[in-house]
């Protein structure tokens, strides 16, 4: 697991080398010395310069980008088959975000683990993911490979999301943003039927009566909407 906040998800009073070693020793039968050496190796893998001395430092001595690298090293230390990255770059600056995304892509090739990336940033998705699931009020409303989803979104919510972000403008005139009206519903007061009906521009009677199922359109593209039933 890689968390969103590299500032608060590391133990501030433990050296980062010890924190990685702890994970290694818990899951693998190795000596303390060996675990430490492996931690240093992991730090090297995630691109931390002079990892031998860095392992001896505490989290507060590192920048946000470095701490996120430490988190990734820790998550990778036991060779997971699946890594869950919850908004791994949201707390970071743009140029540091680029470094971390690059690292995540490189490690996926090198280590061969699958990644579940959780984010609200469509740009990050376009860059890192092969498959995308769009979630709204507790349900997956659309699922497809990244190109089909970005080139041909089908669910009205996904379509609205894409229309509401500013596009490349160049020298052209500013087109008005198409905002999705209304608010995200309270999870305690979800409407009957489709959860998106109150904000949907293409709502019709059936949406208020029954909740739609996930239907397969073509290939891997699936959508939860009565328009496609």
């Amino acid at each position: 697991m890689i968390f969103q906040e590299p500032m608060t998800s590391l133990n501030p009073v433990l050296k980062v080398g010890d924190q990685i070693s702890e994970a290694i020793q818990l899951h693998q039968k190795v000596s303390k010395k060996e675990a430490w050496d492996r931690s240093v190796e992991m730090l090297r893998l995630v691109g931390i310069p002079s990892p031998e001395s860095r392992a001896d430092e505490y989290p507060h001595q590192m920048s946000g980008g470095m701490r996120q690298r430490v988190m990734i090293a820790m998550a990778l230390s036991c060779h997971p088959k699946l890594m869950i990255a919850d908004e791994p770059t949201t707390a970071l600056d743009v140029t540091i975000q680029a470094q971390i995304l690059d690292l995540i892509k490189r490690l996926k090739e090198q280590v061969g683990s699958a990644i579940l990336l959780i984010t609200h940033n469509l740009g990050v998705v376009a860059e890192v993911a092969q498959y995308v699931g769009v979630m709204y009020a507790g349900y997956i409303v659309e699922y497809a490979d990244v190109v089909s989803l970005f080139k041909g979104p089908r669910h009205p919510y996904t379509v609205g999301l894409f229309q509401s972000i500013p596009k490349k403008r160049g020298t052209g005139k500013r087109e008005r943003l198409q905002a999705i009206p209304g608010l995200v519903p309270e999870l305690l007061e979800l409407p009957k039927g489709c959860k998106f009906q109150d904000r949907c521009s293409r709502v019709f009677q059936r949406c208020g009566e029954e909740a739609p199922h996930l239907v397969r359109l073509n290939g891997n593209h699936q959508v939860r909407c009565w328009l496609y039933e």
């Binding site: 600056d93 975000q97 970005f150």
Partner: peptide
């Protein structure tokens, strides 16, 4: 140049020349 190239674009097919800056601010 590096800053603008680092901003993710919402296009999975965009071929981008990303300039990765070394180190931290």
């Amino acid at each position: 140049e590096a800053l603008f190239s680092a901003a993710p674009t919402v296009d999975p097919l965009a071929k981008r020349q990303r300039i990765l800056l070394e180190g931290d601010v």
